[in-house]
């Protein structure tokens, strides 16, 4: 599904990675590892099509855009959890049912916060609103940049289960995390900055 050939990225005169090649198929998970500043986020942004200053080839064989979760929460402070999630999902999926939105918010433990504006939520809750998309999306490729930051232990366990289901159902998962990862499916690992 994803083919990367001879990817080279130089940022501020530092070589982040050089001639990086790998491919990832359906039902495979890849964890990008490395210490801070080694180019993990840049790699994921390149793969998501958000960063274009690189050499090499990135080939996706996908019908739709991947689902991307970045460092920024992607939710508007002035809108409620429901409005934010409805808008984000409708933008990416075309159509989303109100019931599905409510169910997704319940999945990420935001029951009762449906009509609370995201501005008065905690960092972790805002992140959860964004991550609730994982329960709505039909995207077959997920690109998750530190999805567990600011999420509590039980939340992480629930998200891991969702990711596991996704990979076992033939999805593709690209992930950065500094947490211990407990997935039942096989996770390949790519270490940057060595």
């Amino acid at each position: 599904m994803l083919n990367v050939r001879n990817l080279t990225c130089i940022r501020d005169e530092r070589v982040l990675f050089e001639n990086l090649s790998f491919s990832l198929g359906a039902g495979e998970a890849l964890r990008v590892e490395g210490s801070n500043g080694t180019g993990k986020t840049t790699l994921l942004r390149i793969l998501a099509g958000l960063y274009e200053d690189y050499e090499g080839e990135v080939d996706w064989a996908l019908d739709e855009f991947p689902l991307y979760v970045g460092h920024k929460p992607g939710v508007k402070d002035l809108l409620t959890a429901t409005e934010n999630l409805t808008w984000l999902s409708a933008l990416q999926e075309g159509q989303v049912a109100p019931d599905a939105v409510r169910a997704a918010l319940a999945q990420v433990n935001l029951r009762g916060f449906e009509d609370v504006s995201c501005g008065s939520m905690s960092e972790g809750q805002r992140k959860r609103v964004n991550l609730a998309r994982l329960y709505l999306t039909r995207a077959s490729a997920w690109i998750l940049d530190e999805p567990f930051s600011a999420i509590d232990v039980s939340g992480i366990a629930a998200l891991e289960e969702r990711m596991n289901d996704h990979v076992l159902a033939g999805g593709l998962l690209l992930l950065i995390t500094h947490q211990q990862l407990q997935l039942d499916c096989a996770v390949r690992s790519l270490r940057l900055g060595v």
Partner: peptide, 15 residues
């Protein structure tokens, strides 16, 4: 939209 990350999410729209 740029600061809260909505703008980058908009680039992944189906439309």
């Amino acid at each position: 939209d740029y600061e809260d990350g909505s703008l980058e999410q908009m680039t992944f729209g189906s439309g």
